[in-house]
Amino acid sequence: MERIRFSFARKMPLAYISHLDTMRLFLRALRRSGLPLAYSQGYNPHPRLTLALPLPLGVTASGELGEIIFAETVGPGKFVKSLSPQLPESLELTGASVVSYELPSLAAKVCAARYRIFAINGFDRESRQALLQQALDSLMAKEEIILERINKKKKRTCINIRPFIYEAAFLSEENKPLELNMLLKAGSSGGVSPFLVVEQLGTDTGSDLFKVENWHFHREKLYGEKKGKLQALSEGM
């Protein structure tokens, strides 16, 4: 048995598939690769593949993490070499590493994610900077941002998402698209979707600029926690 963690990037146009589609794609690629998959016990055995954090539909990513258990020793080199040719161009393995069984699961580890959110086009930088700054300032100055959610029991609950927004800034560089950069709480202990935060900027300012369709969302990095501090995760950890 061998536990391998890997990092991957998802580019356009594959951003248009869901988390489950991405899982299915990885599984079929693994099966085609001929690598010795390990299966779970029980009534309905399935390969032991997990992805650290579901990637929403429409979002590209560069620092995603996944984990797979093999029945025999494979090694990171052979893993990448066998799996890569079975993946479509827009899904790219960027690293792999054998990790110990002692480590907690990836899903349990992830607690934040950094998003880079780019204006698609048609936004005049000069005139928008002030608006963006104002929207971000007003967002970050709030003590609470209450949103209604429907929970798993289909009941309405209210949730304050303000504590989930760790950082939110905008970057404006010559010859580059306007960018929002956000560090948001994520993972099994709760989090907030970047779509919601961008929409929230819009409700404060009433501007069309913050319609989700005008932005391209990219997840750059996943974070864990060590000694109370956020720490970028990689496949070796």
Binding site: M12, P13, Y16, I17, L57, G58, V212, E213
Partner: peptide, 14 residues
């Protein structure tokens, strides 16, 4: 691209 961002199951058209 703009259209795909707004439809259900965009992978139908990819």
């Amino acid at each position: 691209k703009k259209i795909l961002a707004r439809v259900q199951k965009p992978a139908r058209y990819l």
